[in-house]
C-alpha cells in the first residue's frame, strides 16, 4: 500500500510540473491607455482577451512541426521563412543537445508564429495588446513610470543569451503573465504597423515620401527607452525573418473571434 502511495505522489508531482505543456491562458481586462506610439487620438482602447501565461516553448513548437510537416525546416517555403528558420535545431524534428525543451521557441518567422496560433484557435497579440500587458510589473497594471520597472528591462538588454533560459524564469506580472521582459522578444500580429525607418535621422525628418501620413506618428514618451527599443526592433524586422532571440505567444479574443483588433 505504501509503495502505491509513494508512486502516486511521484506521479502527482510529475503531472503538476508537466502541466506547463497545456499553454494555459489568463484573462486580461481591457482598458484605455496611451502607448508609446498611438493613433491620432493617442489613446488606445483594448478589449478583454486571454493571453498565454508563457511564451510558446521548444517542446510545443516541436509538436507543432511534427503535426504540420509544411513548417519543418527542410520543407518550409522561402516566402514564409528565411534560412535562419529553426537553424538552432538538430534536425527537422529534434532539438540540439544544448537546447532546452522548456526554453522559448525562437528562430521562428512571423508567418510560422501566426499559423501556430491559428492552429490552436488563437491569434498573435496586436502591438497595443502586447504593450498593454507588458507595462505591468509584479504589483501594478501600469508601472511604466517606475524607475525599477525600466531599469529591470534595460538590464535585461545587457544580459547575453537569455533566450536559452527556461520559461517562467522571470517575474509573474500583475495579470499573472510571465516572461514578457527578460527572456525573448516576441512577435506581434501587426508588427509591420511600426513606421520607424532604420535610420534615426529619417524619422526626425518624417520622410513623407517613404511613408504617407508619417507626420502623425510621433512617439508620446521618448523617455521610455525600453519600449522605444521594442518598437525599433518591430520596425526593422520583416515577416520572413527568424531570429534566435525572437519568440512569440498567443492570445484569444473573449467572445467571438474578430479578425484584428482595429
Amino acid at each position: 500500500m505504501r509503495t502505491v502511495l509513494r508512486l502516486t505522489y511521484c506521479l502527482a508531482l510529475f503531472w503538476t510540473t508537466n502541466a506547463i505543456c497545456q499553454s494555459k491562458m489568463v484573462a486580461i481586462q481591457g482598458d484605455t491607455y496611451i502607448p508609446l506610439y498611438g493613433r491620432d487620438s493617442l489613446q488606445v482602447t483594448i478589449s478583454d482577451f486571454d493571453m498565454d501565461i508563457y511564451p510558446v516553448t521548444n517542446k510545443e513548437y516541436l509538436q507543432f512541426v511534427k503535426d504540420h510537416p509544411k513548417w519543418r525546416r527542410s520543407a518550409v517555403l522561402k516566402l514564409f521563412a528565411d534560412k535562419n528558420y529553426l537553424s538552432q535545431w538538430g534536425s527537422d524534428t529534434a532539438l540540439n543537445n544544448n537546447q532546452s525543451l522548456n526554453a522559448a521557441a525562437t528562430n521562428v518567422s512571423w508567418f510560422a508564429a501566426k499559423d501556430y496560433c491559428e492552429c490552436q484557435g488563437k491569434r498573435l497579440p496586436t502591438i497595443d495588446e502586447w504593450e498593454y500587458v507588458a507595462m505591468a510589473n509584479e504589483k501594478l497594471p501600469d508601472a511604466r513610470t517606475l524607475k525599477t520597472y525600466n531599469e529591470y528591462i534595460l538590464s535585461w538588454y545587457e544580459k547575453p543569451k537569455t533566450f536559452n533560459n527556461e520559461i517562467g524564469s522571470t517575474f509573474k506580472n500583475y495579470w499573472g503573465v510571465y516572461d514578457l521582459h527578460g527572456l525573448v522578444w516576441e512577435w506581434t500580429l501587426d508588427f509591420n504597423s511600426v513606421l520607424v525607418s532604420g535610420e534615426s535621422r529619417k524619422d526626425v525628418d518624417k520622410d513623407s515620401n517613404l511613408f504617407c501620413g508619417s507626420a502623425a506618428i510621433g512617439a508620446t514618451d521618448l523617455m521610455n527607452y525600453a519600449a522605444f527599443m521594442r518598437y525599433a526592433i518591430r520596425g526593422s524586422v520583416k515577416a520572413r525573418y527568424a531570429m534566435k532571440n525572437l519568440g512569440f505567444r498567443c492570445v484569444k479574443d473573449k467572445k467571438r473571434s474578430t479578425d484584428e483588433n482595429l
Binding site: 491620432d40 501620413g213 508619417s214
Partner: peptide
C-alpha cells in the same frame, strides 16, 4: 508582410503606409 509594406490605421479614415 510578403511585400514588406508597413501600414497603420491612424484614424477611421486615414492610414500611414509605405509607398
Amino acid at each position: 508582410n510578403v511585400l514588406a509594406v508597413k501600414y497603420k490605421q491612424i484614424s477611421p479614415m486615414d492610414f500611414s503606409h509605405s509607398n
